[in-house]
Design a protein around this nucleic acid. Structure first.
Lengths: 131, 131
DNA sequence: GATAGTACTTACCTGTAGGAAAGTGATATT
DNA sequence: AATATCACTTTCCTACAGGTAAGTACTATC
């Protein structure tokens, strides 16, 4: 009897865990992949035009860039604006909602910098130990 | 002359942008994908054994789980520990380094919750407008 | 008139992430 | 003796992310 109760308690823990994993998965569905976060960062740095974004990114292909911009638009993070003077201009504008992504970008960037330093230190240790 | 200088300034902006994108990409290389963050979260909730982690995740296949655990071990975020009593036990232990991932998990989780609420509100607005 | 830039589209291809299903060998339980 | 649990492995498969390369229609510049 006691054992069954404890097993159910454990099962419950698992269930709760699955529940909290859902928002994580929602966020990952949006931001997983090589490009979306870097593109948002590039746009936050002031790049609004297709070609500017493209040249700010290390070797993104035009096809992929178009696709990612469409995805970001679908997620209501950016807006494609057509400026109808002569010549016609197309601007990709950040939606206010994109501001909510800043903390994610910041923490990822900080972690990435730290990780790189860690790898660098690890390498140095190997060099020192073989001296 | 002036124009060239300005163009070079712009090129520099792009270059800097690429530079800051590198740590972002480093982090994304580790955390992109469906499973790694949820697995770390599950382990932080106390799950240490293969089967516990598996049942805490919504329908992960054994093959994928093994692969993700190996990846996490390679990134020095977890450790596979063999407890050699009878019967033999295998524990997946978080490395201290895994603590650095907590801010990422937190911000992603918060964003995911907020995003889900936003979608929910958007749905309600549609329902109200068609009344 | 030629070249270059803007903002893409189209077609094709590869690799990997991830899923489905079954099997395995050791122990443990009923 | 039969079934279950633990911790996987193996095989097969599909879908999609992403890359390569070329083309396009318009405009701008030299």
């Amino acid at each position: 009897m006691k054992e069954i109760a404890e097993k159910q308690k454990q099962k419950q823990t698992h269930y709760n865990c699955a529940e909290t994993i859902i928002p994580l998965r929602d966020a990952l569905d949006v931001f997983s992949g090589k490009w979306k976060i870097p593109i948002l960062f590039s746009m936050m740095s002031g790049n609004e035009r297709y070609t500017d974004i493209q040249s700010s990114m290390p070797c993104i292909s035009p096809k992929v860039l178009v696709k990612e911009l469409k995805d970001l638009e679908e997620h209501k993070l950016i807006k494609r604006v057509i400026i109808d003077d002569y010549p016609i201009k197309i601007l990709y504008k950040l939606e206010p909602y994109a501001q909510t992504v800043i903390p994610i970008i910041e923490t990822l960037k900080t972690w990435g910098q730290n990780h790189r330093n860690k790898l660098f230190r690890a390498k140095e240790e190997i060099i020192n130990s073989t001296k």
